[in-house]
Write a protein that binds this DNA or RNA. Sequence first.
DNA 1: ATAGTAATTTACGTTTACGTAAACGTAAAT
DNA 2: ATTTACGTTTACGTAAACGTAAATTACTAT
Lengths: 148, 148
Amino acid sequence: MSRTFSITELAQEFGVTNRTIRFYETEGMLTPLREGQRRIYRPRDRVRLKLILRGKRLGLSLQEIREIIDLYDADKGEAGQLQLLLDKIESRRDDLENKRRDIDATLADLDDVAAKCRERLRQLDLDEVSQIAPDTGSQSLKSKGVAK
Amino acid sequence: MSRTFSITELAQEFGVTNRTIRFYETEGMLTPLREGQRRIYRPRDRVRLKLILRGKRLGLSLQEIREIIDLYDADKGEAGQLQLLLDKIESRRDDLENKRRDIDATLADLDDVAAKCRERLRQLDLDEVSQIAPDTGSQSLKSKGVAK
DNA sequence: ATAGTAATTTACGTTTACGTAAACGTAAAT
DNA sequence: ATTTACGTTTACGTAAACGTAAATTACTAT
């Protein structure tokens, strides 16, 4: 149990280059073991990498990602530290929820465009059917109403 | 109705520099009118800028943002174009929904850490109450240093 | 022993998204 | 008339996040 991974294994699994993984190491975000000169990645390193890449997909900078990851293994010594940690988590939560709102707004916009699109398509369809009268006042319906 | 804006007005409203707004123009993402040499931004430009910045917050590249914005004023001439547009919208939707999943996963992780945090806090609280036994097996968690 | 494969370090290059400074125009305010 | 505020273009600079190439080392197979 608890298998380990080579750099190339991880790179392939996550679709990044070896260079990228080494870069994260120089940035202190990964700390693989060494077997002689070779890097040995343990499951925790894999989890880290997964977190890093997830953060990247969210458009976070490596610095921001680092801050999140640091939350995972912050010093949980004293009550004060813990409260501080909870505050940080709260702050990160807020950021993420803002992002979700942005996404939802964008999705709504896209749905809007798509709806208008489909409406126009229906209209074109109708025009095509009534071939005899090509210019039959094709004033379409009001563009409103999102059906999904 | 339909007021216009100066570059500085927009910059201040959205918390970016004038330079940034001009940069978006050189990238063809904004096309303000000119009054002599001065740039005059119309409501549509403002909407554009809002979309651009929203995209940025989502971590999209300017190229990706451009692709989304282009969806808004794509050529809606023929049925084929419209179907293509619908496909592109669909694709963008998928991307965004993937991002939402990433966000939800991260939020879940954070909640997890927060829960453990609060649990530990409760434990510390209990320890503090039983003041008589100051060294009651408070074996702490591993910590790890980040080198940079 | 040699060839091949995969890993390593070192170091310079590249792209994106602006920042920053210089040098200048225009219009209102003092 | 000139300071102040705001705008302009032009152009070089920069930080982040890697890419890419070179030179080297190490294991693996034949």
